[in-house]
Design a protein around this nucleic acid. Structure first.
Length: 284
DNA sequence: AACGTAACCAACCGCCACTCT
DNA sequence: GAGAGTGGCGGTTGGTTACGT
């Protein structure tokens, strides 16, 4: 705080930024901001912007740093595990993006918000229902989320097979370096995959028994895949079927046969959507 | 190849809460 | 205690890229 005050004082003589820059950041601006923070650390953003010689508002600098320049920002596609967490956490907390982001290390609230608005809301639109409606919540919980679980488990299963075939591993975080699963675990050391005898999700083929768990974080309300598994299992108990789908949807899905496998997050065909709409109308 | 549309994402805006003077 | 300054958050916008016709 003292240094911040000093910093602010030393910059007071500088002229007011009447010609503030807006729009996309240039590489030069990025370098200036990164170098300044590397040397001085994050201070008060307005004075930081002035002292660094950036013709930007403090807010703009903060946003650029937090959402893009920070070294621990993860870029690239949202993994199935992350999607699962986002869906689950959003069902708990709603649009509390920053709170949700706290449970996805390296992801920014802006990125999660964008993911939700572009991809999740797209599906709601496809189903012609509100993203907060019970219909869509059910579709997520009984169709989308189990699909994601299956994809996660399939990736873990593939990794196990790799291991069985003589592939030497140093630790569980390296079990499947080529799968989407691994992008998460190589980056998030707190997550690991391990076989368990309880709290498992069975796939339709019942061939995969894995658990995704997070090391507990005392003093921090850290939500985990394990929590999700527990939630999902209670759902299975209640709904009593191997897909984690309510009985009405389950019967419809079994009639779809292989088409059910097409319920990936980006694979909702128009026929799927129509069928789902019909089913939801009938069941709710 | 050209055009239109959809999807994605960085950046901005406005509001609110907190801190400092 | 009041007002100004600042940071944080969620909502929105606009530019760019990808894709389809």
């Amino acid at each position: 705080m003292e240094t911040e005050t000093k910093m602010a004082n030393t910059c007071q003589g500088q002229e007011e930024d009447a010609d503030l820059r807006r729009g996309p950041w240039t590489m030069e601006e990025d370098h200036i901001l990164m170098n300044y923070i590397a040397i001085h650390g994050e201070g008060r953003w307005n004075s930081l912007a002035r002292c660094a010689g950036l013709k930007r508002t403090g807010k703009s600098c903060r946003l650029r740093w937090l959402n893009y320049l920070r070294p621990d920002v993860r870029r690239g596609n949202i993994t199935p595990e992350e999607q699962l967490l986002i869906l689950e956490l959003h069902s708990r907390w709603g649009n509390r993006w920053s709170k949700i982001a706290q449970h996805l290390p390296g992801r920014t609230d802006n990125e999660i918000k964008n993911y939700w608005r572009t991809r999740v809301q797209k599906h709601a639109k496809q189903l012609q229902c509100d993203v907060n409606s019970k219909q869509f919540q059910d579709a997520m919980r009984y169709l989308w989320m189990p699909r994601l679980m299956e994809r996660i488990q399939a990736a873990a299963s593939a990794a196990e097979k790799k291991e069985d075939s003589g592939y030497t591993l140093q630790n569980s975080a390296q079990t499947s370096a080529s799968s989407a699963y691994d992008a998460q675990f190589t980056t998030f050391p707190e997550y690991q995959v391990k076989p368990v005898s309880e709290n498992y999700i069975s796939t339709p083929s019942d061939s995969v028994v894995t658990q995704v768990s997070a090391v507990s974080d005392p003093g921090h309300d850290h939500y985990s895949f394990q929590d999700f598994s527990a939630t999902q299992m209670s759902c299975l108990d209640n709904q009593a079927n191997s897909y984690g789908v309510c009985p009405e949807l389950s019967s419809q899905m079994s009639s779809w046969g292989p088409n059910y496998a097409e319920f990936g997050e980006n694979l909702w065909s128009s026929e799927d959507v129509w069928l789902l709409q019909q089913q939801l109308c009938n069941t709710i």
